[in-house]
Simulated assay, not measured.
Amino acid sequence: MPWFVWVLTAAALGVAEFLTLTVVFGLLAGAALVAAVVAGVGIGLLGQLVALGVAAAAGLLIVRPVALRHMAQAPLSREGSDALIGKRAEVMQEVTASRGLIKISGEEWSARALDENLVIPVGAVVDVMGIEGATAVVYPRELLP
């Protein structure tokens, strides 16, 4: 029943991967499953260890760099209110540090100025610097560097 020991090892490594999200434990769990298959076929301990080593090396040297590169990529598009950050808007009602109204992509949003000392007049063009709840935090385009 050596294959069962390899399956238990793979399960323990799978749990460790779930808790750490490092990719390494998941790849080692896969290697342990390869060793379980080799053990199930009837190959001895030396063959099982060689299979474990080859599968682990292949995973760590080939699969891990690809997975890390994929995980490091930024999402291709932003969704919801996050998609409004960086957009231009027009001031519909004077914007101060505490209140105001802007029009972004045809929609009216409550707004406040990023700088507490700014008063942005009606008709000014602003950039959306952030979203706090249902309020856009804006800054005038002409003051941007």
Rank of each mutant, 00 (worst) to 15 (best):
L8F: 02
A35M: 09
V50R: 03
L46I: 12
L27M: 09
A11W: 00
T20G: 08
L28G: 01
A51D: 10
P75I: 06
I104T: 08
G59H: 06
H70M: 15
G47S: 11
A97K: 14
A67N: 07
A74F: 12
A11F: 04
Q73V: 12
V50Y: 01
G100E: 05
V66G: 15
E108C: 06
G26Q: 05
A10T: 06
G53R: 11
L60W: 09
E107G: 01
A83I: 12
A16G: 01
R78I: 14
I104P: 01
E108D: 05
I43Q: 14
G44I: 11
Q93V: 07
E17Q: 02
E108L: 06
K87D: 11
V24T: 11
Q48C: 14
V23K: 04
I102S: 00
M92F: 07
G40P: 04
L21K: 14
G86N: 13
A35G: 10
V15K: 06
A72M: 12
A16I: 02
Q48H: 11
A57D: 07
A56P: 00
L101N: 04
A57P: 05
V37R: 06
G86P: 10
W109Q: 08
V63M: 07
E17H: 03
R99G: 13
G53T: 08
A39C: 06
E90V: 15
V15G: 03
V37E: 09
L8S: 01
